[in-house]
C-alpha cells in the first residue's frame, strides 16, 4: 500500500550542545503524514521534546541542529530565513506546551492573545480578530466565551488555560500541531476532556498532530502511529496497534511491561512488576543499531545490538 506523500519529513536530524558538546539527537528519521496523529514516546532525556522543538525552530541555546533536514512542502525548514520560518510558526505549524500558564502572557486578556494570531497571520483588523477569537474560544468548548475572552490567564483553571492554548494554536488552521506533553500538568478527568478536544478538532480540520508524551496510555488512545525514543534515537516505529500488541525492540517491551495495567490485578496478592533492566540491560541501551525498514513501513532498530 503506497503511503501518501508526507506532510513533514525529518531526515538524519542531529542536535548537539554547542559545537563540541554531547549529541542529544543521533540522527532522527521520521515522516508525518497529512492528518495523522503521530506519537513520540520516551522517558525524560530521550530527546522527544528536543525533536518537537527542532521542528518548531524553538531550540534554546546552546542546543543547535548540527546536521539533517526537516522538509515541509518541498522546503527545508532548517535552510529557511528566520522571517520566513517565523511566518510558518503559529500559522502552518503550531505548538502547545505542558504548562499553559507559562506559555500565556499573564498581562493580556486571553481574547487579545487569540485575536493577535488573526491580526499577525491573517491581517484582520482588531474588531474582526476579536470576534474570531470568541468563536475560537467557543470551538474549544470554553463556556460563555464572550465573557471568558476578557479574562486573564490566572483567572482560569489549568484545563481552561490548556483549552485557550489549543484555541491559539489552532486559530490559523495549521497543517501540523506539535503537542508537547499537553496534559501532563492536568488532572486525569480534565486530561480526558482536553485529549478528546484535540482529537476532534484536528480530525475535523485534517490537522496532523505530533504528540510528544511519556504516557503510553495517552499515546495509545490518541495516535495512529508511534515512534519510541531512547537516548536520542528513534528505536522503533510502528502502527499503534502493532506496537502495543507486538513491540519489537527490547526497550519498548521493557517500557510496556514496567507499567501496571488498570484492571489487570487478580486476587491473591500483589505481583512484582517487571523492571526495564530485566529486559534491556542499561549498558545495552543507546547504541547505534542499524535501522531496519520493512516494506510495510514498520521500522525498528535491530534487536541484535541489544539482545
Amino acid at each position: 500500500m503506497p503511503n501518501p506523500d508526507p506532510l513533514l519529513s525529518v531526515r538524519d536530524l542531529r542536535v548537539q550542545v554547542g559545537r563540541r558538546g554531547p549529541q542529544i539527537l543521533h540522527g532522527i528519521n521520521l515522516d508525518i503524514l497529512p492528518g495523522e496523529t503521530y506519537g513520540l514516546v520516551g522517558e525524560s532525556g530521550s530527546g522527544k521534546s528536543v525533536t518537537g522543538l527542532s521542528i518548531m525552530g524553538l531550540l534554546k541555546r546552546p542546543l543547535n541542529v548540527s546536521a539533517g533536514s526537516i522538509h515541509y512542502q518541498d522546503q527545508n525548514l532548517l535552510k529557511l530565513a528566520p522571517r520566513a520560518r517565523r511566518r510558518l510558526r503559529g500559522d502552518r505549524i503550531a505548538m502547545i506546551f505542558q504548562e499553559p500558564m507559562t506559555a500565556l502572557n499573564p498581562v493580556a486578556s486571553i481574547g487579545t492573545q487569540i485575536a493577535e494570531m488573526f491580526v499577525i497571520h491573517r491581517g484582520l483588523d482588531w474588531p474582526a480578530a476579536r470576534r474570531r477569537a470568541v468563536e475560537a474560544l467557543d470551538s474549544v468548548q470554553v463556556p460563555s466565551p464572550e465573557e471568558r475572552a476578557r479574562a486573564y490567564p490566572h483567572q482560569l483553571s489549568g484545563g481552561m488555560r490548556q483549552r485557550v492554548m489549543i484555541a491559539i494554536a489552532l486559530a490559523c488552521r495549521p497543517d501540523l500541531l506539535i503537542a508537547d506533553e499537553p496534559t501532563t500538568a492536568l488532572d486525569v478527568t480534565v486530561q480526558a476532556g482536553v485529549l478528546k478536544l484535540i482529537d476532534e478538532l484536528c480530525r475535523a480540520e485534517g490537522t496532523a498532530v505530533l504528540l510528544v508524551s511519556h504516557d503510553l496510555g495517552v499515546i495509545a488512545n490518541m495516535c495512529q502511529r508511534v515512534g519510541v525514543m531512547d537516548r536520542g534515537r528513534l528505536i522503533e516505529e510502528q502502527d499503534t496497534v502493532a506496537l502495543f500488541s507486538n513491540p519489537l525492540h527490547p526497550y519498548t517491551r521493557g517500557l510496556l511491561a514496567a507499567r501496571p495495567r488498570l484492571g489487570s490485578r487478580v486476587e491473591g496478592g500483589r505481583k512484582r512488576l517487571t523492571e526495564l533492566e530485566e529486559i534491556v540491560p542499561p549498558n545495552a541501551r543507546g547504541h547505534d543499531a542499524p535501522t531496519l525498514v520493512t516494506p510495510r513501513g514498520v521500522r525498528a532498530a535491530r534487536a541484535e545490538a541489544t539482545a
Binding site: 495509545a220 496497534v241 502495543f244 495495567r261
Partner: peptide
Amino acid sequence: FTTPTHPYTRRLIDSVPDMDAVLA
C-alpha cells in the same frame, strides 16, 4: 476497582487513558 459505585469513582476510572484499549 471491580464494582466502582460512586459516580465520581466511575468517572475517575473511566478517564484513565488505557493502553489496552487500542487492542480492539
